[in-house]
């Protein structure tokens, strides 16, 4: 069994979990709002919030990946069981899909002609002029990576529940603050 994790990593894990579920539920709702126009501005706040949280999640995930790589480098390499290898794969896939989801969302927004301002403070660069084809391409990538992420999260939660109900202490490190 692995030793305790840094408290910062535990906090970041739970903040990311809360943010990702909020992004899912709010995006399903906001995409049913009227299309934007001069009169209909219902999408402004939800989309801005979606981008703010999405970019924040991306930064947090990059920090978590860095922490994971550092901790792996500092630890002696022991033989790993099949389940441990699967858990590693699940984590890598989750990190990859969150990164892909956030990046494709940002790129889609960038090619849609809408500006991306992070928490109403930092202007993110747009990659080019409005490009309908690239906007739709990245929008599709955003959608499919998000569906894949939801599936991987379901597996992740299922595995966490399995270990908890088996009382095998495998997930306790994620709860030590």
């Amino acid at each position: 069994m692995e030793g305790p994790l840094p408290k910062s990593k535990v906090v970041l894990h739970w903040l990311t979990a809360a943010a990702v579920f909020f992004l899912f539920v709010s995006s399903w709702w906001m995409l049913a709002l009227p299309l934007p126009s001069e009169n209909f501005t219902y999408r402004e706040l939800p989309f801005q919030l979606h981008k703010n949280i999405g970019i924040t999640v991306l930064i947090v995930v990059i920090v978590m990946i860095t922490m994971r790589i550092k901790s792996k480098m500092n630890k002696p390499q022991l033989a790993r069981t099949r389940l441990e290898k699967l858990a590693d794969l699940d984590h890598m896939l989750t990190y990859f899909l969150i990164t892909a989801c956030c990046l494709s969302g940002y790129l889609s927004s960038s090619f849609s002609g809408w500006e991306t301002t992070w928490w109403w403070l930092v202007n993110f660069p747009t990659w080019s002029e409005e490009d309908e084809v690239l906007n739709i391409l990245f929008s599709d990538i955003h959608m499919w990576t998000c569906w894949a992420l939801l599936a991987v999260i379901a597996l992740h939660i299922g595995a966490a529940l399995y270990h908890t109900f088996r009382n095998d202490e495998a997930i306790i490190k994620m709860f030590r603050l």
Binding site: F21, V25, W29, P34, N39, F40, L45, L49
Partner: peptide
Amino acid sequence: ANHGNELLKQSVLTPGSAAELFVPAD
């Protein structure tokens, strides 16, 4: 996530906005 979305929903769908004034969809 559920209550966060509800808070967002109630903040966005305000009385007197375009939909309530029967502005046609664009």
